[in-house]
Computed example of a mutant assay.
Amino acid sequence: MTTMARDAAARATKAPAVRSSCIRRHELAAFLRSRRERITPEQVGLPQGTRRRTPGLRREEVAQLSAVGVTWYTWLEQARDIQVSVQVLDALARTLMLDGSERAHLFQLAEAVDPTPAASCTGVTPALEEMLRALEPIPACIQNSRYDILAYNRTYARLTGDLDAVPPEDRNLLILVYTHPDWRRAIVHLEETRRLIAAKFRVAMAGHLGEPAWKMLVKRMTAESPEFREYWERYEVTGLRNTRTKQFLNPYVGLLSLDHTDLWLNPESGARMVTYVPVDEESRQRVAELHELAVPAERD
């Protein structure tokens, strides 16, 4: 085969891939425009204004809210061949208020892997889900080393309010403890809890410093929570204790004193089942009452 023939064959082989990539870029651009145009300025805390011709948000507003350059975002909507990081995709998904299906579609079009727990609950087998149910009325959940809550039983769902109402991508202990109103009200020793979880998270992150999901979480927390930023900048570290007593002021049944226990499922990945066993008879009765309140939510 001559050199010219080989070059022609190579171009023919690459052509379908090039066309596919081009189609994806145009689909991504169209999808972003459609999502941008459905969001009103009021939904993201911007004034409506009197001379707004564009339906929904302007490109520069999306860029500003997502902390990216206006020119770069414009190129993205023009289907130009540019690289898009998972951090930027995550920021765009939040700015455009994408639901779970829309978020998955965004990452698929960008040919990227969504690093949030909403994308995959790796390691939660049917057997583990059955164990969570069997532990009722004891509140229990499964967490990974990043403190994402991957699965939980009905009593745990009502331990601090209504965990079912929290978007899956926000079911993370750092996010909940530092930013969620229900959790902040329910945790009796809030500041101690915040300090300890920041110190434990720093220890856990030492083995994941180059992973986007971990860096994205820290970036989000430092931006959204001055309290987290303060504790994070102290560089405190502490190890995990398998058992300790915690107190919650539950909005449905009152004060609960519970022994928190970590049951390690996979020490290498940090996966663990977390249980909360009542330490006294009053807490035991209240946990049973909480379970009775939580079960109808599952039937509904």
Rank of each mutant, 00 (worst) to 15 (best):
G45E: 05
Q43H: 15
E27T: 06
R53M: 00
R25Y: 05
R36P: 11
D7N: 09
R11P: 02
R52W: 02
H26T: 12
R36N: 01
I23V: 12
R24F: 04
R52Q: 08
L46E: 10
P16H: 05
P16S: 03
R33F: 02
I39P: 03
R11D: 13
S20L: 12
A5Q: 14
M4N: 14
S20M: 14
Q48W: 03
F31R: 09
G49S: 01
D7K: 09
R52A: 11
L32P: 06
I39H: 05
R11L: 12
A29V: 02
P47H: 07
L32A: 09
V18P: 02
E37A: 13
S20Y: 14
V44F: 00
R52I: 00
A15Q: 15
S34A: 10
V44C: 05
S20K: 14
L32W: 02
M4W: 11
G49E: 02
P47F: 02
A30Y: 06
E27Y: 03
V18I: 14
L32Q: 04
R35N: 02
A10N: 04
T40S: 13
T54H: 07
A9K: 05
R51A: 13
V44H: 08
R33S: 05
R36Q: 03
A30Q: 13
C22F: 12
P41F: 01
